[in-house]
């Protein structure tokens, strides 16, 4: 699998993402620049990593969503390419219209930097195929604007079509208000596009890929991608 990680001014999680992908695939991802107008030939996965692109000016991800490479990413996604957006990358995906909804300021108004637990809602995707349905894994959140919002009709559609990939839950898998620290609608932590190939999530699974540094709870996501896209 050949992955490409896009960097914007203010991106700061690209190296963790590169390590996670390399660990899972044995291959160094290409580092791409926001001003690039096309993706390298043979790209199987585009990753929009976390950070504070353009200083979060106007709205988180709003500027990045208008950058030259996003046009190429739109085309790539339109051709059925896999696109993963983490944290600021998720914010870019909703701002770019590749996923529905928006990410509001955390309900507490606080920047949340803490562990969270995520319940896997479906496993027939490249991102979640190495998990069990209902499995809970530990991850980390580090964001000020992760409060997922969409109107009721959009939320119902997401639920109806099974496009909610991950929900904030307790360690034992209960979806509770207390586990939903940022106030997201219906505890939504990550959503998929209708073709299941675009995933946006606020937490950072790339934080947990090394047994020596905070464990490997996030590794199945990257291993699943490597496996699912190996043939691609």
């Amino acid at each position: 699998m050949q992955a490409g990680i896009v960097m914007f001014p203010g991106t700061n999680r690209e190296r963790d993402m590169a390590l996670a992908l390399q660990r899972a695939t044995g291959r160094k991802p290409a580092m791409l620049w926001h001003r690039d107008t096309e993706l390298p030939a043979g790209t199987d996965l585009v990753v929009l990593p976390g950070g504070f692109s353009y200083g979060d000016y106007l709205r988180c991800g709003a500027m990045a969503a208008q950058s030259p490479i996003m046009r190429a990413i739109h085309d790539f996604a339109g051709r059925g390419g896999h696109v993963l957006g983490v944290c600021n990358g998720f914010q870019m995906l909703v701002e770019a219209g590749l996923l529905p909804g928006a990410l509001l300021r955390n309900a507490s108004l606080r920047f949340l930097s803490m562990d969270c637990h995520l319940r896997v809602e479906r496993t027939d995707t490249a991102y979640t195929c190495r998990f069990q349905r209902g499995q809970v894994f530990r991850s980390t959140m580090a964001h000020g604007d992760g409060n997922y919002f969409a109107d009721a009709a959009t939320l119902d559609r997401l639920e109806g079509e099974g496009l909610v990939a991950l929900r904030y839950a307790t360690a034992s898998g209960e979806v509770t208000e207390a586990a939903n620290r940022n106030g997201s609608a219906r505890n939504i932590a990550g959503i998929l596009s209708p073709n299941l190939r675009v995933l946006g999530l606020m937490p950072h699974p790339e934080n947990q890929v090394d047994p020596l540094i905070d464990g490997t709870d996030g590794l199945p996501l990257f291993e699943g991608l490597a496996e699912a896209l190996a043939a691609a």
Binding site: V94, A102, F149
Partner: peptide, 9 residues
């Protein structure tokens, strides 16, 4: 519509 406002919210 294009940039200054996010009309979702």
């Amino acid at each position: 519509r294009r940039l200054l406002a996010n009309t979702v919210i």
